[in-house]
Amino acid sequence: MSMAGLSTPINGALRRVPSWVVYLAGLIPLAWVVYLTFTGGIGVDPVKGIEHRLGKIALWFLVGGLAITPARRWLGLNLIRYRRAIGLLAFFYIALHLSAWAVLDMGMLWSQALADLVKRRYLLLGISAFILLIPLAATSNNASIRKLGRNWRRLHWLVYPAVMLGVVHYLLQMKVISTEGWLWLTAVLALLGLRLVPRSR
């Protein structure tokens, strides 16, 4: 079956899935983390376990969000109507990841946390990614799209540097960058690179 032949029934089926289902399904990873925390499955160090898992989930949503446009262009798979949900879920998990760092990991030692933020490159990259995403999350509603017009699209290009900062933040916190780390970076670079492929008309 051709790509288009396969994507047509999938697109048809997806049209019947309302986006609230995506929001709800997006909470499953959180439920999983909570479940692991209460059953001890989160590991010997629950603080790092929670913090790192939330960060990794956020990365999945960020990369998933980046994959939506190329998936439509090259696979004919239309997930555009779920992009807002995916993006907001990514933001939600980044906010949780950041809270886990500040509250559980840093133990709300605000002065040390702030000093670390400024001094440590990987933390600076992480917090920058979060800050870049704040206006995006804030304008993820129909009223903003109408009001901002063409500027809405321009504003949301910020997602590209944000994901880049996020993935580099993930790599730099490792003592030695692992194979998995390089795979994540490759995936992000590939998804960003695909946007540079000119459209042939």
Binding site: D45, V47, D105, G107, L109, Q112, A115, D116, K119, R120, R121, Y122, L172, Q173
Partner: peptide, 8 residues
């Protein structure tokens, strides 16, 4: 990359 002033 991080402070050594405190520990968990």
């Amino acid at each position: 990359r991080w402070s050594q002033a405190t520990e968990r």
